[in-house]
């Protein structure tokens, strides 16, 4: 998947995208192409701009500079109706998009279907059963989120994300808060669904294990800049010092965790 893709038209293409919050350039001149069917991982430390990247790609935020093309359409320039149409082809599993606790598993999965389509209840019920069986949760229709484990809740989120047969699914930290075994199971499921359903997956994570489990290609983001993009299988051999520091979890290197330029007077308002 990772090789020989360059001749194709990318399904997602960012061109010189920048985003400011107040005066701070949070996303800094990012250009990136993602191809149909690949699992593309954007990795980076907390605060590096990963979630902002997904919000830009899904049209939740608009870039201040540059263009974001999804299947050839610049989503910053199209009407909100057109954007809605594009977003119907997305699935999203966001870090904090928790399930609604007052709804059962099946009602949670039904939400996007009812929102976007006029289908008979009998048909929706069948779709829910299909989706829950794809994520290995057959029989849990009537459970409430509080009655199932964290890993199962993620699976429900995944079933909800694929409810409308998306061709792109965005995942923001899909394994965060899960133990390594459950996280590994979620990774396996993401990979399987991508391959079986021919979904393009964009995964944001700081979980290195997850990167090795699922990525076809990887981009590393640091302070809002893409410092490198490469096939996952050459990650270990990369000489890029950012990549090296990140995958080995070293405290010292070009990624500075503690700002050296802090102004101690400013902190105390002096």
């Amino acid at each position: 998947m990772s090789e020989n893709v360059s001749k194709e038209e990318p399904i997602i293409s960012l061109k010189n995208v920048s985003k400011y919050f107040q005066d701070k350039k949070t996303i800094d001149n990012v250009s990136l192409d993602i191809y149909r069917g690949e699992t593309f991982v954007i990795m980076g430390c907390s605060g590096s701009g990963k979630s902002t990247m997904v919000r830009l790609m899904t049209g939740i935020l608009k870039p201040d500079e540059g263009s974001i093309f999804i299947k050839g359409k610049d989503i910053a320039k199209i009407s909100s109706e057109e954007l809605d149409e594009v977003r119907k082809t997305f699935g999203m599993l966001f870090q904090y998009s928790a399930l609604l606790d007052s709804l059962t598993v099946e009602e949670n999965v039904a939400l996007p279907i009812k929102e976007h389509a006029k289908l008979a209840d009998e048909i929706i019920d069948i779709i829910i059963k299909m989706k829950l069986s794809l994520v290995g949760l057959r029989g849990y229709e009537k459970y409430y989120p509080s009655q199932i484990s964290g890993g199962m809740r993620k699976r429900v989120g995944l079933a909800r994300a694929i409810a409308l047969d998306p061709d792109i699914v965005f995942y923001d930290e899909p394994t965060s808060g899960l133990d390594p075994v459950v996280g590994g199971a979620i990774d396996k499921l993401i990979k399987e669904l991508s391959e079986k359903l021919l979904i393009t997956s964009v995964v944001i994570t700081h979980d290195m294990q997850s990167v090795f489990n699922i990525a076809d290609r990887v981009a590393m983001i640091h302070k809002g800049r893409i410092v490198d993009v490469m096939p996952a299988k050459v990650l270990n051999n990369s000489s890029n010092p950012y990549i090296q520091q990140f995958i080995n979890g070293r405290p010292n290197g070009p990624i500075d965790f503690f700002k050296e330029d802090i102004n101690i007077e400013e902190i105390f308002g002096l």
Binding site: A117, L119, E122, I123, I126, M130, K131, L164, D165
Partner: peptide, 11 residues
């Protein structure tokens, strides 16, 4: 054929 189509056949 999408999931709603498949569901229609299952029904």
């Amino acid at each position: 054929i999408d999931s709603s189509g498949l569901a229609t056949f299952i029904e």
